[in-house]
C-alpha cells in the first residue's frame, strides 16, 4: 500500500522557528543569528558590541557551542543575560534548542537578542531559528576564496563583517575580492570591514544593528 505524504522535512523546525519569531516580536525584541567559522571572532565582536552599545541597548545572548561554557562566561562577565547551549557534537543550532533557551532568559528586559551559532560555515545557514536577520563574520585569515566556497552562507545573510582587517597587511588576502565575490552572490549584502579587536570600522555595524531595533 502506498501512502502520499508530501511533507517538508524541515517543517517541524520551520514551525518552531515561526513560534520563536512571533514570541520575540510580540515582546519587541530584535533577534540576530550570528554565524561564522570557528575562530573568526564572533565572541570578541559580540563582547565589544555589548561594551559599546550596552548603555543604550539591553542585550540578551544565546551561545551555541559543541561543548563548554567559555563564551557564555565572557558574555556573563559583561552583566548581560546569557544562556549557553551545548549541542554535544551537533554542528548547528536548531529552532527547538533556541526555544528552550528562551524560557530561561528574562525576555522582558531584552531589546536585542544575539544568537551566536556554532562555528561552522555550512549547516547553520540551513536552519531558521526564528531570527529577524542573519549576520556573518569572515576573518581575513580565512582567505578571500571563502565566499565562492561557501555560497549558501553568504546568500542567506543580510550583513557580512570582514573581521581582523588589522591583520590584512600581513596576509596575501584581497579585501576587494571578498567584497566583490560576496556581493556577486548576494547583491543586497551589507559589507562592513572591521577589527573587533581595535574597534576599526564598527560604526557601520552598530548603525545597522540599531536600525534593526523595534521602537
Amino acid at each position: 500500500m502506498k501512502v502520499k505524504v508530501v511533507t517538508n522535512i524541515l517543517k517541524a523546525n520551520a514551525r518552531i522557528a515561526e513560534e520563536n519569531r512571533r514570541n520575540l516580536r510580540e515582546r519587541g525584541i530584535t533577534t540576530i543569528n550570528l554565524m561564522s567559522s570557528p575562530g573568526a571572532g564572533k565572541t570578541t565582536l559580540l563582547a565589544r558590541t555589548i561594551r559599546d552599545l550596552g548603555a543604550r541597548v539591553r542585550f540578551g545572548v544565546v551561545e551555541g557551542d559543541i561543548q563548554g561554557t567559555h563564551d557564555a562566561e565572557v558574555i556573563a562577565a559583561l552583566g548581560v543575560p546569557v544562556i549557553q547551549i551545548n549541542t554535544a557534537g551537533g554542528c548547528h543550532l536548531d529552532a527547538n534548542m533556541v526555544q528552550s533557551a528562551l524560557t530561561e532568559l528574562p525576555l522582558e528586559a531584552i531589546d536585542l537578542l544575539v544568537i551566536e551559532n556554532v562555528g561552522n560555515l555550512v549547516c547553520p545557514a540551513e536552519f531558521d531559528l526564528g531570527e529577524d536577520a542573519k549576520a556573518m563574520l569572515l576573518s581575513v585569515t580565512e582567505g578571500d576564496d571563502k565566499p565562492l566556497k561557501y555560497p549558501r552562507m553568504f546568500r542567506e545573510c543580510e550583513a557580512l563583517l570582514v573581521n581582523k582587517i588589522d591583520l590584512a597587511p600581513h596576509l596575501d588576502v584581497s579585501l576587494e575580492k571578498i567584497r566583490r565575490d560576496a556581493l556577486a552572490l548576494n547583491p543586497a549584502l551589507q559589507v562592513f570591514e572591521v577589527s573587533a579587536r581595535s574597534g576599526q570600522g564598527l560604526e557601520g555595524w552598530y548603525a545597522w544593528l540599531e536600525g534593526k531595533l523595534r521602537a
Binding site: M1, K2, V3, K4, V5, V6, T7, N8, I9, L10
Partner: peptide, 11 residues
C-alpha cells in the same frame, strides 16, 4: 526541495 513524497508498506 526537501520533502518526504510517499511511503509504501503493509498493514
Amino acid at each position: 526541495e526537501l520533502a518526504v513524497l510517499d511511503l509504501e508498506g503493509e498493514p
